[in-house]
């Protein structure tokens, strides 16, 4: 086993997910099966290989710092579960 139930609990916490006791058992099993499979990559020696994050040469796209048309406040808030005075409202943070 590469990861334990406790590791899965920590991953769920980092992922902002709640897992039931049964979920924890099931995910520990399926994630370990996947990680076992992924282990085959260690058969490849990649010490001298450069990583490739992208497929084509990319460059930063910059524009002048000028106001451009964008969504108006009403549209931006249209899907908000809760809003107040033109802002997204969330439960108590502190």
């Amino acid at each position: 086993m590469i990861i334990s139930e406790r590791d899965v609990e920590q991953l769920a916490f980092l992922s902002r997910l709640d897992l039931t006791a049964e979920d924890k058992i099931a995910y520990t099993k399926s994630l370990n099966a996947i990680l076992d499979y992924l282990d085959m990559l260690n058969r490849l020696d990649t010490d001298t290989v450069e990583p490739a994050a992208h497929v084509l040469p990319l460059k930063n796209i910059l524009r002048e710092d000028k106001l451009q048309p964008s969504l108006d406040k009403e549209q931006a808030l249209a899907n908000a579960p809760e809003e107040e005075e033109g802002a997204f409202k969330v439960p108590r943070i502190v």
Binding site: V8, L31, T46, V49, A52
Partner: peptide
Amino acid sequence: VKRRIMLGTHALSTGNYNDYYVKALKVRTL
């Protein structure tokens, strides 16, 4: 979706980042 989020979180987390994510990017080069 939850499984992939946790798998991705595992691959990007401290201590695993090089073994999984960077390794995969190197294989992408190959």
